[in-house]
């Protein structure tokens, strides 16, 4: 028991150190940016006396280490400061924008898994055949196109030319603000509260960015699934199962796949973390009001509180997902246990 506790303590310590490092790096990158935060707050036409006054008000005339100390002290009280761009506290903004990203990433994850895993299994079963090659090229192609190009092409084809899907944004204007905000994820909120028109509309808006993001991250899932399956199919128990005359489908799904899903879950957790990154660009093209767009805008506007806050949130999620993958692996894999 004390061994477990020690592991727990060590893990916690390393997570905290990582997050602290993340804060330091972000803070200093932010402060050496060649953008005067004052210009971001006041605009280019502000006269010198106003500039000087606001610089003192914000403490930007203090030494860097002091500014960092203030930031850090507030951080411990969960106060991330205010965003210049939105005028709201950063924590409030994150609560506002993160659910949209979460919704998008989750939808993408579901699609990528539902398509990527079966494809990977298929490629493994047909190893070396044309099917295998087609699956590989198809899945690798997704991660070989710049995401923004894929997103714009998708808009041109599915929205403009074919008219199958709606354009940018999270929901049509007509339905905006109708469903009450509960989780912040529009599709879910609308469903819980029974606003089925809004739900349907939001779902349609979600399809395009989710598919783009899913296609982008599918290659990794497919490749890992294929690899795991190939290993599993070579296993002795498969030979035994074959000898027993079990059906091919049963062997593949029950025996081989049943043995790899633990490994797969860790892969999925890591892919999920990577999705947050792809979301930055996808959100820009689809005007998706998520954290990625919030972060990029803040960065370009030298809105440092917002940048620090959202980087920390993404960092925390990443660390958490990694940890989760690790724990799951340890808990569920008989070989590791």
């Amino acid at each position: 028991m004390s061994g477990r506790l020690r592991t727990l303590a060590a893990t916690t310590a390393s997570v905290l150190i990582t997050l602290f490092g993340l804060t330091v790096v972000t803070f200093f990158i932010g402060r050496v940016m060649p953008i005067d935060p004052i210009v971001a707050i006041l605009g280019d036409h502000a006269p010198p006396d106003v500039v000087a006054r606001v610089r003192i008000e914000l403490g930007l005339n203090r030494p860097l280490w002091y500014q960092f100390w203030i930031f850090f002290r507030n951080l411990i009280h969960l106060d991330l400061g205010r965003s210049v761009m939105t005028t709201h506290p950063v924590l409030h903004d994150i609560g506002r924008y993160f659910p949209a990203t979460f919704e998008l990433a989750t939808a993408a994850m579901i699609v990528a898994t539902l398509i990527g895993v079966p494809l990977g299994v298929l490629a493994a079963v047909r190893q070396g055949t044309r099917t295998d090659h087609i699956v590989r090229v198809f899945s690798l192609a997704g991660s070989s196109i710049p995401v923004f190009m894929l997103a714009m092409l998708s808009l041109v084809v599915f929205y403009a030319a074919l008219g199958w899907l709606p354009g940018t944004g999270q929901v049509s204007v007509v339905y905006d603000g109708i469903a009450p905000r509960i989780t912040g994820m529009l599709v879910i909120d609308a469903a819980i509260t029974g606003h089925w028109n809004t739900f349907y509309n939001a779902l349609l808006h979600l399809i395009q960015p989710a598919l783009v993001l899913a296609y982008f991250s599918m290659a990794y899932i497919t490749r890992m699934t294929r690899g795991f399956m190939l290993d599993a199919l070579r296993g002795e128990y498969i030979t035994t199962a074959r000898a027993k005359g079990l059906s091919a489908a049963r062997i593949v799904w029950r025996h081989a796949f049943g043995n790899i899903w633990v490994q797969l879950i860790t892969v999925l957790a890591l892919t999920y973390a990577g999705l947050l990154e792809g979301a930055v660009v996808t959100e820009t093209v689809f005007s998706w009001p998520g954290l990625g767009q919030y972060l990029t805008n803040s960065l370009l506007n030298a809105d440092m509180n917002a940048v620090l806050g959202s980087t920390l949130v993404i960092g925390v999620i990443y660390v958490f997902l990694n940890l989760l993958a690790d724990v799951l692996y340890r808990l569920m894999d008989p070989r590791v246990r």
């Binding site: 699609v111 298929l122 099917t131 598919l211």
Partner: peptide, 22 residues
């Protein structure tokens, strides 16, 4: 057993859903 057809059907499902409510 996963066949080629079922894979295609799965990936085609979403646009069909969309065209219904276009």
């Amino acid at each position: 057993m996963l066949t080629r057809r079922s894979v295609l059907a799965a990936s085609a499902a979403s646009p069909m859903l969309a065209s219904l409510g276009a």
